[in-house]
Design a protein around this nucleic acid. Structure first.
Lengths: 342, 342
DNA sequence: TTGTACGCGTTATCAG
DNA sequence: CTGATAACGCGTACAA
């Protein structure tokens, strides 16, 4: 291994001068600066991260905690974090909690010792458990997709997304729209619900049906679809795209046409949303952007935590269409054995 | 910050003894060991990773390099790496090259300085560029989903997967099966092709049509589907599930029924494969397992690099069925405006 | 502007 | 079994 001492020797200067030259510090003659640079280059010198961390206290690393790397939502955020960190010369240490909120404190402390700051995606950790966690963290923490008073955060303008979706559906003539909600402990589900509540008390008097809470997965959507049908909804707004995809699949399996019979709207605009048939109408959310912003938030050492809210946009695709008479359970199931329900 | 010195002081022993006690080293009296443990516990002592790394030379960190974190294939591998690293008390530093092989050398050296070993997923880096890269790496490197003479690797029994898929298709009566290949520079595509070549010179004389190389994405599948139809194939085996999903979508859009008219087989068994309609028949590949094995391979300091090949299994779902008379371009397009081609 | 010397927190070596 | 003490590689007061 080639150390700074080797570089200094080769350049004919002292260790201190070499150090200053490498870190572009002032008080170094142009000649020496060039000498050192040349020596470092030719020797293939690379500073030892641990040694640097030991003296400076900064590791050049950001941590990322997500519930599930295989979930396209978090994968997209991770890409953004990754990209921004790399641009700013930092590396990213990633931890997947496997959807288990009980391990989060441990993961956070373990990671916390090795990083300069932490990007935390923990949609389902109860608010009262989040506070202590933030307090225990020694470095800066940036929250993604949720807000809290004590930490900077980047989230999305969910209320506006819900509004756009509802406007779209109502313009299409849907009076009975149902909401397939996410986990009760989810901050962003709460956001959707309050937005929905505010929007459904409008002058038109249209209310939106609460189908309940579902696991934020394909399976959750399957359950929600049955309930939506039973309730006679002509449109269903989903907690996220995974749920929407499940609704789509279940509707298809039960012989209900989408969007002819019922319209479906998702949330997030995950990659799969545009690839499925029919392509999903969904509220596009700048996931990667959020990841990038989160790492920038780590640096901002303002006293008051900064809360950035990114705007969202409804993407209309093929899963929504003008309302037709309600479809209920009395509708005959398909006789095609491929799609029939036993 | 509480250091080991504080612990030693509190326990009434020297720094050296405290160090030994903490690292479960021998030559420490049971009494002192307990004292130190108690002191560390009550003070909330956590060893400083950088300091430890500086002296030991080991960082307790493994690196992971992938082309795209948002690709479900790599996301699954990443989960495995993550899980195994955590189990063994290590953290993982992840780098996403964004499918750009030209940045890989840089990424690898940057990461290499901070980790004890590197798990490298680089399916498309040309073999002649991989060799030098491995030579330049200072720590151990484990390859995932490709093999090379100079590094340990974990890959899949692709030949057997292809065989299983082909057997399945032939048993269903498909004489004309087409292969929608992946990138030419891909090691695993080459594996599929040689397996295919060996299998198609059998006594039956059935050959498999080579549709060409496609981008390993949904879009690639769309292109492949048109070619498969033009060639009159009754079944198409795809490079991976993303391609297969593209084929499925395109077939549907062109009014060709799956699996009634043409069967489709994927590769990898990514999560989406079982969620789509019709559910995809595909060769399941233990992605997460591979990730776990890869981190274990890093530790094994054998002189000869170890090459582990994981077995795969065809999962028969709804996208394959007995062959029907070939469908060609002469077949009338659907008149349903939803699916018609302009 | 340059060099010397100390400290960062740990582990490891060597006497006791 | 225990305790000083010397590294590890680098940044940085302080002195020159």
């Amino acid at each position: 291994m080639v150390t700074l001492r080797d570089v200094a020797r080769a350049a004919g200067v002292s260790l201190a001068t070499a150090s200053r030259a490498m870190s572009d510090a002032p008080h170094v003659s142009a000649a020496n600066r060039a000498q050192v640079a040349r020596a470092a280059e030719s020797l293939g010198y690379r500073p030892h991260p641990a040694a640097r961390a030991l003296t400076t206290g900064s590791t050049g690393t950001v941590g990322l905690v997500v519930p599930d790397l295989a979930n396209p939502f978090f994968a997209a955020v991770a890409k953004g974090v990754q990209a921004r960190a790399r641009e700013t010369g930092r590396e990213v240490l990633v931890a997947d909690t496997d959807e288990d909120v009980t391990v989060e404190p441990d993961v956070i402390t373990r990671l916390g010792d090795r990083v300069d700051g932490l990007v935390l995606c923990s949609p389902r950790l109860p608010a009262d458990r989040l506070g202590p966690l933030l307090a225990a963290a020694d470095g800066p923490v940036a929250l993604v997709n949720r807000e809290a008073p004590d930490a900077p955060s980047v989230s999305f303008d969910i209320a506006d997304g819900v509004r756009q979706a509802l406007d779209h559906l109502r313009a299409l003539g849907h009076d009975v729209v149902a909401y397939a909600g996410g986990p009760r402990s989810s901050w962003s589900d709460a956001e959707r619900r309050t937005a929905l509540a505010r929007l459904s008390t409008g002058t038109t008097g249209d209310a939106v049906l609460d189908l309940g809470s579902f696991r934020p997965t394909h399976g959750g959507g399957v359950q929600a679809a049955d309930l939506a049908l039973a309730a006679g909804a002509t449109a269903v707004l989903c907690f996220n795209d995974l749920v929407a995809l499940g609704v789509l699949a279940r509707l298809h399996a039960r012989g209900v046409a989408t969007p002819a019979d019922v319209s479906v709207v998702g949330f997030d605009d995950v990659a799969a949303a545009s690839l499925v048939t029919p392509a999903l109408t969904t509220v596009a959310v700048p996931l990667a952007r959020a990841g990038r912003v989160a790492v920038d938030l780590l640096a901002g050492g303002s006293p008051e935590p900064e809360h950035r809210r990114l705007s969202v946009e409804l993407v209309v695709r093929a899963s929504t269409a003008p309302a037709s008479p309600a479809v209920t359970d009395s509708r005959p199931l398909s006789t095609d054995p491929e799609v029939a329900i036993r």
